[in-house]
Write a protein that binds this DNA or RNA. Structure first.
Lengths: 338, 338
DNA sequence: TTGAAAGCGCTAACAT
DNA sequence: ATGTTAGCGCTTTCAA
């Protein structure tokens, strides 16, 4: 069942059928009706491969998610898919492990799937000029600002929060409650990514408050798993019972930390306060409810697509959008014990 | 950068390059090496649209996820993507709300994306003969056995747990601890889906144990959100403090329920035990740890793809795979209070 | 073992 | 307003 069959079925040329298919104006109403009827009767469906081949450009947008096991990304992915769909684009999802390189994954995706643009979710922050060039098509970094790379800001876009400022803010919330022995739970202080930036905010907040940095209280997990965050927190409390607060760079890590604190026989927030950044749905239902700086997940996803479509259509140049978190007051923040 | 450029670059015909690309045997080693070198040097990537056009069949598999906000699906989706990728197929993801109709979504996807097969995740259990025909290509129901539909079992495949048996088993765990006032937390007893089946298992377990069914203890939420499960549980305990156990049909609902129980001033499991079905990562870190029947999420995803590929290749007819849950002993199951 | 050439189904000039 | 036709990039006969 091809366009030829349809054309033959109603005695017109294939180009006329094509015109009807693509809503071109110069087709008489009667012909259009006849073609439409035949299309319907024959259950004809255009072959997308053929269309794509001619178009030499496909209306697909790639989404490379690094570390999709993090529940934080789920609503963002949904928002991106919905936005792509609404704009008539197909979203091509590719999930890679936390340790993998999203640039090569993205470049491969671009080549094999003929994408118009690409969105990186959860990626590194240190793209080089060469890596940017390797992508070859417009791309948007979501949750990522590429602070550490030498890549020219004008060749890509981003939508993210200000990780440094939010790390500072979270730590400040704890300091304001009188905490001084504040641990920070993160991936790695040198991950060239969100951990490093939020950690810098943490350090600055401590410094501004005159609280000395204690290396013992920097809890690195190497990966982003809940299991690692649990184990690391457990170990910290076995060594140091005097920790009175934790700033966790992610809700999922904070939830693991709460469990570890409970398992060493302490209570939150009486013995130890916790503040995190993310605002996943689940953290509304922990006992006690997590106090966290919520990121506007849906807005981030929608904005990423919006930016990409603007760039693709030429309506606007690439841009960098900063969104703010909103404090969700839970029950894990309390005054420091003495 | 097309196959022509590569052919020109090493002085051979396009057909030779094509042969190399597709690992045809009748190419001399030296020519093959020359072509491979040129492909590499020119960073040539074949155009999939053109390949697909010739193949007249596209190696794409659709995945329609209903209610992707449920964290239970995340690892399954990942496993499906990885399996498709490994088999050289592209996974096309489409997420729809819980209330939406996956059949029409799937049928639309098939038409617009030219899929070879389709996997439904989290779908209804009552496909009619007509609906099955509407899909038009092989499909696998993941987590869904279509118990309620009149669709011939031989025209589709499925991979799921035995919802009735597992509902029975979960309830039995509570009964064995001496519980008699066991609430069930579910979507709807008439959802023609997992709720209804697991509820039937619950009823049977009660009946077998001689425990009368109490309509007050059937907690319906209408949707699958954590918020609804929380509110419903809260209301239940405001009306009836004597509930000593809850069987939640999903981990996420169980976590909400635990929060609600805590918020009415009771403790788990002393005042109320909880057993759920799912086994999401998060429920390892709740306080107390959730006792739940874990579904083999990764295996389910892999199996769904495996079945579909078998059917597509003709290696095997459609089949229905039943997997078993594994009890993850947490801390939410205790003896009934008197 | 290699090359030439005919399509795959469609769109978009270009003609009429 | 409609038809004719040349490709899009690739695979696959069919020849050589």
């Amino acid at each position: 069942m091809t366009i030829k069959d349809v054309a033959a079925a109603c005695g017109v040329a294939v180009s006329t059928v094509s015109r009807v298919l693509n809503n071109h104006p110069d087709v008489s109403a009667s012909t259009r009706a006849r073609v439409l009827e035949a299309i319907d009767r024959l259950h004809y469906i255009p072959n997308n491969s053929a269309r794509d081949l001619v178009a030499s450009q496909v209306d697909s947008i790639g989404l490379v998610v690094r570390g999709a096991e993090n529940p934080f990304y789920t609503p963002i992915i949904r928002a991106i898919e919905a936005s792509c769909e609404a704009a008539g684009y197909t979203m091509v999802l590719h999930q890679i492990p936390v340790g993998a390189d999203e640039i090569s994954a993205g470049a491969a995706l671009v080549r094999s799937k003929r994408l118009r643009g690409i969105i990186f979710l959860g990626g590194r922050f240190d793209y080089s000029q060469e890596e940017g060039a390797a992508i070859g098509i417009p791309f948007v970094c979501c949750t990522n600002t590429n602070q550490f790379g030498d890549l020219d800001k004008s060749v890509y876009s981003s939508v993210s929060i200000d990780d440094f400022a939010e790390g500072y803010r979270a730590t400040r919330l704890l300091i304001d409650q009188g905490h001084a022995r504040i641990a920070v739970l993160l991936d790695s202080v040198r991950d060239h990514s969100i951990s490093e930036l939020r950690y810098a905010g943490y350090c600055q907040a401590l410094a501004d408050a005159g609280v000395p940095l204690d290396a013992d209280l920097v809890l690195e997990t190497i990966d982003f798993t809940m299991a690692a965050a649990y184990e690391r927190t457990l170990r910290a409390f076995r060594e140091r019972r005097d920790i009175t607060a934790i700033f966790a760079i992610a809700d999922s890590m904070a939830i693991s930390a709460m469990k570890a604190i409970h398992d060493v026989g302490l209570t939150v927030p009486e013995a130890c306060s916790i503040v995190a950044i993310d605002g996943i749905e689940m953290s509304r239902y922990t006992v006690p409810t997590l106090t966290t700086l919520t990121q506007p997940q849906v807005t981030m996803g929608e904005e990423a697509v919006k930016i990409l479509l603007d760039v693709l259509s030429g309506a606007a140049p690439s841009r960098h959008v900063r969104l703010e978190t909103v404090l969700r007051e839970g029950e894990t923040l309390g005054p420091a014990r003495h």
